[in-house]
Amino acid sequence: MTTVLIALAVLAVLGAVFGAILGFASKVFAVEKDPKEEAVLECLPGANCGGCGYPGCSGYAAAVASGKAPVNLCAVGEGPVAAKIAEIMGVENVSVVRQEAVVHCTGGGVDHTKFNYLGIKDCLSASLVAGGPLDCAYGCLGFGTCMKACPFDAIHVKDGVAVVDHDKCMACGKCVEVCPRHIISLEPFKTKKHVTIPCSSKAKGPVVTKVCTDGCIGCGICAKACPKEAITLVDNLARIDYEKCVGCGICASKCPRHLITVDDKPSTFQPVPKKAEVTEEAQEPKVATETPAPTMTEETLTPEIAKAEGEVISETTQEAKKEPEVVKTKETLKDPKPAEDTSKVE
């Protein structure tokens, strides 16, 4: 009995002593934290993705609290979080442009391979073997290095090419960093419809047509067609300046390779009810084609016209297929037909 009592007493005393030491230590060794920092940290999503360029959310919170970082760097939390942080810091909020990762490859060249690669299933190691198994030196290798890097499960390899799930993408930029081909980039999704050129090939037109069914041949038709002069040709590749792009989609309708894509962005824009869509499809397209393109500024791009524009694209692309004489550049004039045939097969 006495042993039990002694044991209890010893444990109680030890516990009390250690408790006292810890309590004392927490006072003596208390590190003064900026209350703002903790408040900011509470607003952040806590994904610790590092997309802001700081080591995790706590690192970013510390940088914001000390005034070294702007309040709107968190791509995951977007506007609401930036607004909260701005409130805490007493700064005026700067609006966050939503960004998303875009893979600049359609996978049109997956069937054109130089050799059968059987090594480690990783894009970097595959790209080290004679520049990768693909004939196209710029195409997606499809081994999913980006997929493994993505902390949000937002990028997947489908049919040999990486595809971004736009609902899940938080624009942290991890995939952009790891891609050994540098074909993924973050693009601002600010227009109602996002226009993308999903190709990274800087090769000349004839080379591209040999190795890929959809690659950009650098014909420049889109650049001429663009009412805002947002598209420029650099190294045989059309590029969109998103500062100027209004998302009208005219370039997509003119592209002889049907490469340029126009996406709806369902995550932030209210989708038009399906029924309305169908009726518009039936009536609107012709009216919309007659609308003079240059007047299509961001303000006039009401959802309805934008919707109609979307339909126009599908219409006019079919037209373009029927009339290849739209294509004026030498490279494309050589053989626009075979390329289209293969794309149809795919």
Partner: peptide, 23 residues
């Protein structure tokens, strides 16, 4: 009592070290 006392000691020690290092 060794096991339980040692657990107590280690747990407090780790907490203490953490605070000590942070400061």
């Amino acid at each position: 009592m060794q096991t339980i006392v040692f657990i107590l000691v280690i747990a407090s020690l780790v907490q203490f070290i953490e605070m000590f290092l942070q400061k």
